Simulated assay, not measured.
Amino acid sequence: MARNRYYQGPPSDHFDGTRFFNPGQPPTDRGLRDLIRWRLAGETARWPRSVPVTKARPAARVAGLRVTMVGHATLLIQAAGINILTDPIWSPRASPFRFAGPQRVTEPGIAFDDLPPIDVVLLSHCHYDHCDVATLRRLQAAHAPLMAMPLGNDTIVRAAVPGARCVTGDWWDRLTLGEGIATTLTPAYHWANRWPSDVRMALWSGHHLATPAGTIWFVGDTGYGDGTIFGEVRARLGAPDLALIPIGAYAPRWFMAAQHVDPAEAVRICATVEARRALGIHWGTFQLTDEPREEPAAALAEAVAAQGWAADRFVAAVPGSVYEASARP
């Protein structure tokens, strides 16, 4: 049996002693034959080389709850005076290589040098479009934030970012991040790796943030599966004031459904957890899959209308745009 290089712990209902898995859900592993079948289908849409972005210049601190979209799954959450980044990536490629891999189509919605003081970084998993060690090194040098992540990811981060302050947890663990602020790691139907040899050796999760200004659920990457985990999030943690839900990188469905939701499924998640408001993330920055760049935003708007919701309850977040939220009365 292969040895897990990132995490050594007892088996559980989602860890077999070597690899993590999604209990009771369709497998996410895809072999070379599946990859060749996908690529030979030739159905990948052509994306623009670049899309203009109007960059934001955030305030140093915010008393309430404000979210600025940077791009992909990177957002600046400003809540009750605390500044938090999710899955930060400022690199031009989502890749282990500088010369190959998916390139940015949109510039970051905040210039790195315009970031306010960053107190906390939340990581959902170790895929290169979510755990970019070049960006983490820059953040460590400039801000030395606390970094919170699921099991095993700390081994990856500490090896690449000397001096990084890491806190880790399993699904449903609550991690204290500062005065009056904490994250609960929520299950997701996904997978993780850095190389072909370490598939599912580090855990994946979302983050359910509790702050004095309100609650924010950063879903992380997930498929819909049987939907059980989303009902559990609502039952255990309550309805979030704001949910950050992925809407892109879903085509073709035969390949991607077990690991990435589509916009209609994202709306189902939002309805299940009864989020007061939601932002669609994980779309339009890196071309990872087949769908046209603008399709997720259009499909989300259609799904929201079909639900009978106000159009602004769940919108596709645009890099550089700022979204104000508030806690429930």
Results as ranks from 00 to 15, higher is better:
Val273Pro: 08
Leu115Val: 12
Pro246Lys: 07
Ala164Cys: 09
Ala305Gly: 05
Glu232Tyr: 10
Ala278His: 02
Pro150Val: 03
Gly31Lys: 10
Ala316Ser: 04
Gln103Phe: 01
Pro108Ala: 11
Arg39Trp: 13
Ala325Gln: 06
Ala100Phe: 12
Thr168Pro: 00
Arg98Gln: 05
Phe255Val: 11
Ala111Tyr: 06
Thr28Gly: 11
Val273Gly: 09
Asp154Phe: 01
His14Tyr: 15
Gly223Lys: 10
Ala298Ser: 14
Pro102Leu: 01
Val233Ala: 07
Ala317Met: 06
Gln25Ala: 14
Ala266Trp: 03
Asp29Pro: 10
Ala301Glu: 09
Asp119Val: 07
Trp254Met: 05
Pro263Arg: 11
Gly17Val: 10
Ala327Asp: 04
Val219Trp: 01
Cys126His: 04
Ala94Thr: 06
His14Lys: 09
Lys55Glu: 14
Ala271Phe: 05
Trp204Val: 09
His130Phe: 11
Ile245Ala: 10
Pro102Ile: 05
Pro212Asp: 07
Ala271Trp: 04
Thr28Lys: 07
Gly280Gln: 00
Arg61Trp: 09
Phe97Trp: 15
Trp191Gly: 12
Cys131Asn: 09
His72Cys: 04
Asp312Tyr: 00
Leu115Gln: 09
Cys166Tyr: 01
His143Pro: 06
Tyr224Ala: 11
Glu295Pro: 00
Pro292Arg: 03
Gly227Phe: 01
Val157Ser: 04
Pro102Gly: 00
Asp113Lys: 14
Gly180Trp: 05
Thr44Gln: 13
Pro240Leu: 09
Arg61Ile: 10
His130Pro: 00
Thr289Leu: 08
Pro263Cys: 12
Arg3Gln: 15
Asp226Ala: 09
Val157Asp: 03
Arg66Ala: 12
Ala159Thr: 12
Ile82Pro: 00
Ala235Arg: 15
Arg3Asn: 14
Thr289Ile: 02
Ala317Lys: 03
Leu122Val: 13
Leu32Asn: 11
Pro102Cys: 02
Arg33Phe: 14
His190Asn: 12
His282Ile: 13
Glu43Gly: 10
Glu295Gln: 15
Val53Asp: 01
Asn4Ser: 11
Arg66Tyr: 05
Val261Arg: 08
Arg165Leu: 07
Gly178Trp: 01
Pro240Gly: 07
His207Asn: 14
Ala271Leu: 13
Asn83His: 06
Arg194Pro: 00
Thr228Ile: 09
Cys166Phe: 02
Phe286Asp: 00
Leu279Asp: 01
Asp113Val: 14
Pro48Thr: 01
Glu324Trp: 03
Cys166Met: 12
Asp114Gln: 09
Ala243Arg: 08
